[in-house]
């Protein structure tokens, strides 16, 4: 097990290196630079800026310089917000995204599994059809439609909840719901399909034949295998929540990482974009690794060599 963990983590390093290199090339391939505006700076000024930010060096040299900084934990200053370091911005923005994303994930998993289980146990009855129809809506309606509609209903008309910022627990409700909904819907469907499948298995039939209660069968025998596809989905779900957070943070004015990512790309803020890419890359690699371990815990048939 330990060997497996170490091998996995070791193989993550070339992956991350590739990600950094690709991001570096892509962000510089886009036409336009961080200091381009409709009015030109004087040639002397452009020269000074290029020198200060090493933009006039050949690309491989810039890349090596960046890697060197990375190994020392220095992500560089933001090209746009010159008074802030990228690591500062990430340190400020990540907790916000983590809170919103984490809560959204919890909500999606808890409610999604609950709804999917309910639908599976009452298959083809009204509850099932309702859950399936609603989850289809949740998957199809994009969150940049859902979020403003939620704001409209709960903040503008009813005035029950605030429309932006994160000043109190009430401020978290709408962004977390808007972010969680598509994942909640998908997890519900996944759970339902998986549970229906599991309930047809021979060992479940055996358990029923042995006279165990329906509740016990569901919770003690059927739930763990049902959750396997859901756990596998958690990796992509995290990625979806990370990208979904960009829109949500924009609409609710939350100072999170997703917003920095998009604004950074639009502003050609090379260091900020690279910093966020590296950070997300590490997160996703770690998270997928954790998911794999979780898989092993749930399914005793899985052995790690």
């Amino acid at each position: 097990m330990l060997r497996y963990a170490l091998t996995r983590l070791a193989s993550a390093i070339p992956t991350l290196l590739l990600v950094v290199a690709l991001a570096f090339m892509l962000v510089r391939a886009a036409p336009g630079g961080p200091f381009d505006t409709e009015r030109r700076l004087s040639p002397a000024m452009e020269q000074r800026l290029a020198e200060a930010y090493h933009l006039n060096e050949p690309l491989p040299q810039q890349f090596l310089r960046y890697l060197g900084g990375l190994l020392q934990g220095d992500l560089g200053p933001s090209y746009r917000y010159r008074q802030s370091d990228v690591s500062e911005l990430i340190a400020d923005g990540f907790p916000v995204s983590l809170k919103i994303g984490g809560l959204a994930m919890l909500l999606a998993v808890a409610l999604g599994i609950a709804a999917g289980t309910l639908a599976a146990l009452r298959q083809n009855r009204l509850v099932d059809h309702l859950v399936m129809a609603l989850s289809m809506t949740g998957i199809s309606v994009p969150n940049f439609v859902v979020a403003p509609v939620l704001v409209l209903i709960f903040a503008v008309v009813l005035r029950w909840l605030p429309a932006g910022d994160l000043a109190s627990p009430a401020h978290y409700v709408l962004p977390v719901i808007a972010l969680a909904l598509p994942q909640l819907a998908y997890i519900a469907r996944l759970t339902r399909a998986s549970m229906i499948d599991v309930l047809k298995s021979p060992y479940i039939r055996t358990a029923r034949a042995q006279g165990l209660s329906e509740r016990s069968i569901v919770l003690q025998h059927a739930l763990k295998p049902t959750l396997l596809p859901v756990v596998s989905y958690l990796g992509p779900a995290t990625a979806a929540i990370l990208t979904g957070s960009v829109v949500i943070e924009q609409i609710f004015n939350l100072p999170g990482l997703g917003r920095f990512f998009v604004q950074g790309a639009l502003n050609r803020d090379y260091t900020l974009v690279m910093g966020v890419v590296v950070f997300y890359g590490v997160l996703i690699v770690l998270f997928n690794f954790v998911v794999d371990l979780l898989y092993g815990l749930l399914d005793p048939r899985v052995r790690y060599r």
Partner: peptide
């Protein structure tokens, strides 16, 4: 409790899924 949560979620989703107009009019 599960049923209640699902019903509440259903109401919420119905409210969202019904209107596709992002700007809306109060």
């Amino acid at each position: 409790a599960l049923r209640a949560m699902v019903a509440a979620a259903a109401l919420l989703l119905a409210a969202c899924g019904g209107s596709g107009d992002t700007a809306g009019e109060a």
